[in-house]
Structure formats: structure tokens, C-alpha cells
């Protein structure tokens, strides 16, 4: 088979794959973006271990991953994101508007936590970018 035909086939397959990724509607099993304080975190901090659980910037996507879930599994109350959470308590915050939300958060050096809620990816390119980001950030 001529080399040009092979290359053409590869290019066609790549375009088809890109089209599939871009046009296929995105569905997620869960809308939750979960952050958890593991048991023993307070003890680790007291012993000088620098434990960072909640980033100071969180990106969410409307309609796909738009619920922030915080869970405190530690034995002591913790300031976690915008609020004080008791041991064993969880906090579930839904977002319905794409915007940037600022919360005072003493757990961060900046004293602030920012949650950016992005619009639902409506174009093929936005869907490709969202899927690529999910792939990069998915746990291995």
C-alpha cells in the first residue's frame, strides 16, 4: 500500500476520533467534586507536617461537575473552605451559575479560596478541551 494512502487513513481516523470526542455529548456519573480531610490530619499538622488538602483555586463546570463536596473525616473540627466542619460532617454546595466565587478561607495563606464555575462546554472544541482536562486530572 502506498505510504500516502496510509497517512491519509491515519489522518481520517484522527479527524473521526476528534469529531467523535467533540460532538459526542458529555455525560458524567457524578456532579460531585469531592475533597476530604483524612483522619489524623490535625495530628499531622500539629507535628509540623504541612498538609494541603483544598487548593486555593477550584474549577467546576456547570451541568457536569458543579457540586463542591467537602468531608471532614478527622477527629476534630476543621475550617475547610468557607466553613467550619465538625468531625464526620459533610458539606455539599451546588452551583447553578457560571461565575467566579470568592470565599474567605483561613486555611490558605492568601486567606481566600476561589471557585471558578465555567459554563457547560457547548462547542466541539470546548468539549474536547474538557475531556482532555478530565483525562489529565483523573486519578491513575
Amino acid at each position: 500500500m502506498p505510504r500516502s494512502v496510509t497517512l491519509l487513513g491515519i489522518a481520517a481516523a484522527a479527524v473521526a476520533a476528534l469529531g467523535f470526542v467533540g460532538f459526542m455529548p458529555i455525560q458524567t456519573l457524578s456532579h460531585d467534586e469531592i475533597f476530604e480531610i483524612p483522619r489524623g490530619t490535625w495530628a499531622r499538622r500539629m507535628s509540623g507536617d504541612k498538609v494541603e488538602i483544598l487548593p486555593d483555586h477550584i474549577r467546576l463546570t456547570l451541568g457536569l461537575r458543579d457540586i463542591l463536596v467537602l468531608r471532614n473525616h478527622d477527629d476534630v473540627p476543621q475550617i475547610f473552605g468557607p466553613t467550619l466542619m465538625m468531625p464526620g460532617q459533610s458539606f455539599r454546595l451546588p452551583f447553578e451559575r457560571a461565575s467566579e466565587y470568592q470565599f474567605a478561607c483561613t486555611a490558605h495563606a492568601s486567606g481566600q479560596m476561589t471557585i471558578v464555575v465555567e459554563p457547560n462546554p457547548a462547542t466541539p472544541w470546548a468539549r474536547i478541551a474538557w475531556r482532555a482536562r478530565e483525562l489529565l486530572h483523573s486519578p491513575r
Binding site: 466542619m85 458539606f91 455539599r92 454546595l93 451546588p94 447553578e96
Partner: peptide, 12 residues
């Protein structure tokens, strides 16, 4: 029914 606010579970 869903609240618009963030919900604590369990509430204290």
C-alpha cells in the same frame, strides 16, 4: 427537596 444553599450532613 434540593436547597440552593450548601447543605450540612449531619446538621449540628
Amino acid at each position: 427537596p434540593p436547597l440552593k444553599a450548601g447543605v450540612f450532613d449531619p446538621p449540628r
